[in-house]
Amino acid sequence: MIAVLIFPDFQLLDAAGPIAAFEVAMRYAAGEPAIRTIAIQTGPVRSSSGVELLARSTRAAGNVTTLIVAGGQGVDEAARCARTLSFVRSMARRGVRIASVCSGAFILAEAGLLDGRRATTHWQRTRQFIATYPKVKLEPDQIFVRDGDIWTSAGISAGIDLSLAMISEDYGEEIARKTARQLVLYHRRSGGQSQFSSLLELKAPTGRFAPLLAWARENLAAPLTVETLSERAGMSTRHFSRAFIAETGTTPSKAVEKLRVEVAKARVQSSAEAIERVAEATGFRDPERMRRAFIRAFGQPPQSLRRAARAG
């Protein structure tokens, strides 16, 4: 049984994202969805958008095996609620797997569940979190973090990434892949990947070149020349280059480098994979070429980022 803990002014997607992911996974696993929303006060609970979800009492959490705590505008008040904190602590004592989405990490931290543990939260609240909870080993550049039975995730949509990882653990990789495909999502964004996608840094990632950029990100090892991209887009090279710059604010080659650097950084920080292999897999080919790209993007070579990640 999956339970999502909500409270007044919670962020709707923090709850709806994991609910949708687990619903699809449970159906693929040939079972009926076993998911419920719960709250300290039963009945309709208003999200920050004004949309309400109907919640059961926390007393109905007897057979819950996973508790997901939402975040949102109301999280600070929820983190001051003694009943909320007591409930979360009681679930932890029972050995329930507990996760937070976005700023929901503040509730887990206030309950003492994150002391001495690795965790993450929404990038806008990292300074506040670090200042308020110095005992927590915050990793602000992560999509999600798992430390034992406690999971935390970054801003809003990262709750779906976290859910897909849990689904993989519960039902296996194949169902996780099917779930991601059904939701039209990447199966796995690395837990070491920046909360910001290079696709989001482009001026108009949702425009006509969005499918092309998504394809490029999945085929970084290929020779993604301007000619290759323009052919994929069905345009002449000259027209493609002009239109791409006008719509995204950067050149095709710089956009491809951003994507390669993003994925390479994730692999460098989250694995012991040889730097040469990372360069080959992400299309840089030459480790020296990748090193120069890293310095342009991050001011540090790959080896320095790997050492910093391990030290953290």
Rank of each mutant, 00 (worst) to 15 (best):
S103V: 11
A55L: 09
F294E: 01
T126H: 15
V136S: 08
L259S: 03
T225Y: 02
E52W: 04
L5D: 02
L185S: 10
M26C: 03
T228V: 15
L199K: 10
P287W: 11
A29D: 08
F240L: 05
P8R: 02
I175V: 12
V24C: 04
R80A: 14
Y133H: 09
G148M: 00
L213S: 03
S271E: 10
I275D: 04
V261I: 14
A255E: 04
G249H: 08
V75G: 05
V45D: 03
T120D: 01
R127K: 13
S49V: 05
M1G: 01
M166D: 01
V226E: 04
L54Q: 10
R59A: 15
R277Y: 02
A308Y: 04
I2Q: 07
N219G: 10
P302H: 04
R291T: 14
R292D: 09
G50V: 03
G74R: 02
G192D: 02
V96E: 04
E173S: 11
T251I: 11
A297W: 06
A34Q: 08
R118M: 09
R80F: 00
H187Y: 07
V88D: 03
P44N: 11
M290R: 06
A281V: 10
T58M: 12
R181S: 14
E288H: 08
A297D: 12
V101Y: 06
I275L: 15
R118Y: 14
A70L: 04
Q124T: 08
R83L: 11
A243L: 12
I143N: 11
L108P: 02
A60E: 12
L53R: 05
A246Y: 02
A55P: 04
G249T: 11
F144P: 06
A99L: 09
R181P: 00
V96W: 07
A297E: 13
G17R: 00
F87V: 07
I130Q: 11
L220A: 09
F196H: 00
F298E: 13
A34V: 06
D286P: 09
T65S: 14
L108N: 00
T282V: 10
G95N: 07
Q128C: 08
A60T: 12
A105R: 05
E218A: 15
A16R: 01
V263C: 07
V51C: 08
K135H: 12
A79I: 13
A25G: 03
G74D: 05
T58L: 12
P287C: 08
Y171H: 10
L113R: 00
I175W: 03
Q193M: 15
A3D: 07
F284M: 05
F106M: 04
A272K: 11
Q269K: 14
H187Q: 06
V268I: 15
F284A: 03
A82D: 12
D141Y: 07
A246R: 11
A308T: 09
S47I: 09
T206P: 00
M235L: 15
D9F: 02
A111H: 07
V51I: 14
D14K: 07
E218I: 01
V145L: 07
V263L: 15
T66D: 07
A99D: 01
I98S: 11
R59V: 14
M1H: 09
D147C: 03
